[in-house]
Design a protein around this nucleic acid. Structure first.
Lengths: 167, 167
DNA sequence: TAAAACTTTCAATTATTTTTGAAAGTTTAG
DNA sequence: CTAAACTTTCAAAAATAATTGAAAGTTTTA
């Protein structure tokens, strides 16, 4: 396999993986492309390499920047904007985890809390509902806290956590 | 908030959360409904409560069973099938993690390995590509192994892991 | 073994999400 | 100031994913 072929395969695979996790395919592809580019990349280049429209490129780059995993990088002397990806994988995982927590887990927890505090009406069904949603709340809250704890230190947290688990 | 209202809100929220993580909304809703039901539920009931077609219910129940998080439960004397969800949350998380690893992470790792072993052609771009995809492979492999390790013991693994991290 | 009681399948339809592209907006250079 | 170079926005179009419903399939009952 040659470099160009390998790069293309990587970008396609990353895009497909993104889709399966609820991330727009193009967004994941742009991210993949930037991840493996040693130099910063212009919007033109992204459009050309992924064969996508300007609007599409613009919007998905915006999203990636909102996630905090892609940055603008101005090249001296150049008018147009260039982009680079966060390449440190601990940092990348941390940012993704924090964003997903903020956008999805925290709001879900809020709802879980709300629905788990209804008055029991004596029925078995309501009783079970309260029990189960409370358990779910505790579980999700604990998982969320764990992710936060583990990624806050961030300095090679995955490796360190691995060490702890091995013991 | 009354029981019925709370239940509905929970089902809706779980469905929306599923969508954001690449899981079909109805599938997540059926799962939510079964999670908070104290008794096993028939297909009729699911169709009626979620206002969905028979085909939809059938296909998504099949998927949930393929994931190993919903089971058939025959009621004595009843002809039709009833369904129950895996309610143990450690077990649920374990099954989901294992399935996603098998279906998505493992194949992605395979591709990462493939593309990271191309011959360097001396260019900076190819050099960087190889470096970065190798790092990515290591990172993802480590994360995947960690999930496996942690969920294999499964007996309250989240709580135990939490303990380790606190120290 | 026939028909009733169910479940599954899948082509067609509908809903949702993504993408396009051109107009509007912004910044820089001269 | 104003034209060129570039980016953003967003309504419409295209692509993708989910859903329906009826026919086909299966199992149970009598």
């Amino acid at each position: 396999m040659q470099f160009e072929e390998a790069k293309n395969k990587f970008v396609q695979t990353w895009g497909a993986l993104g889709s399966q996790w609820g991330i727009n395919k193009t967004m994941a592809q742009i991210h993949a492309l930037l991840m493996v580019s040693s130099e910063s990349v212009s919007m033109e280049d992204i459009m050309q390499q992924l064969q996508i429209s300007r609007g599409n490129a613009s919007m998905n780059l915006r999203s990636l920047m909102d996630w905090g995993i892609v940055y603008k990088a101005n090249k001296p002397g150049e008018r147009k904007e260039f982009f680079i990806a966060e390449k440190d994988l601990d940092e990348l995982a941390t940012k993704i985890a924090k964003e997903r927590s903020k956008r999805e887990i925290k709001p879900a927890l809020k709802v879980l809390k709300e629905v788990s505090v209804i008055e029991a009406d004596g029925s078995k069904a309501a009783e079970h509902f309260i029990q189960q949603t409370q358990k779910l709340y505790d579980f999700v809250a604990k998982a969320d806290e764990m992710i936060d704890r583990v990624t806050t230190y961030k300095d090679n947290w995955l490796g360190k956590l691995m060490m702890k688990i091995l013991k």
